[in-house]
Computed example of a mutant assay.
Amino acid sequence: MSELLEKFSEKLRTMRKKKKISQDKLANLTDIDRSYVGRIDRGEVNITLDKLYAIAKALECQPADLLPEIDYSQEE
Rank of each mutant, 00 (worst) to 15 (best):
E3S: 10
L4K: 09
L4Y: 15
L4H: 14
L4G: 13
E6C: 11
K7H: 13
F8Y: 15
F8I: 09
F8E: 10
S9Q: 00
E10V: 14
E10K: 10
L12H: 07
T14G: 11
R16G: 02
R16T: 12
R16N: 03
R16K: 10
K17Y: 08
K17V: 11
K18G: 10
K18D: 15
K19N: 13
K19P: 06
K19V: 03
K19H: 15
Q23P: 11
Q23K: 13
D24I: 15
D24P: 01
K25A: 12
L26A: 08
A27P: 00
A27L: 09
A27D: 06
N28V: 14
N28E: 15
N28D: 15
N28W: 12
L29V: 08
L29G: 12
L29C: 10
T30F: 05
T30L: 01
D31S: 10
D33K: 09
D33F: 08
D33A: 11
R34F: 15
R34S: 12
R34Y: 14
S35A: 12
Y36P: 00
V37I: 12
V37P: 00
G38M: 05
R39A: 11
I40Y: 10
D41Y: 11
D41K: 11
D41T: 11
D41Q: 13
R42A: 07
R42I: 05
G43A: 01
G43H: 00
G43D: 05
E44V: 05
E44A: 10
V45W: 13
V45P: 12
V45C: 06
V45L: 08
N46P: 03
I47P: 01
I47S: 09
I47Y: 07
T48G: 02
L49V: 14
L49C: 04
D50R: 04
D50G: 05
K51M: 05
K51V: 00
L52E: 06
L52V: 04
L52A: 01
Y53K: 11
Y53R: 10
A54I: 01
I55P: 02
I55N: 08
I55D: 02
I55W: 05
A56R: 05
K57Q: 06
K57E: 07
A58M: 00
L59K: 02
L59M: 04
E60H: 08
C61L: 03
C61T: 12
C61K: 09
Q62P: 02
Q62M: 02
Q62A: 03
P63V: 03
P63M: 01
A64S: 09
A64P: 02
D65C: 02
D65W: 04
L66Q: 06
L66E: 06
L67Q: 01
P68N: 01
I70A: 06
I70N: 03
I70M: 09
D71S: 03
D71M: 00
Y72T: 04
S73R: 03
S73P: 00
S73G: 09
S73N: 09
Q74P: 00
Q74R: 07
E75L: 01
E75V: 00
E76D: 06
E76F: 04
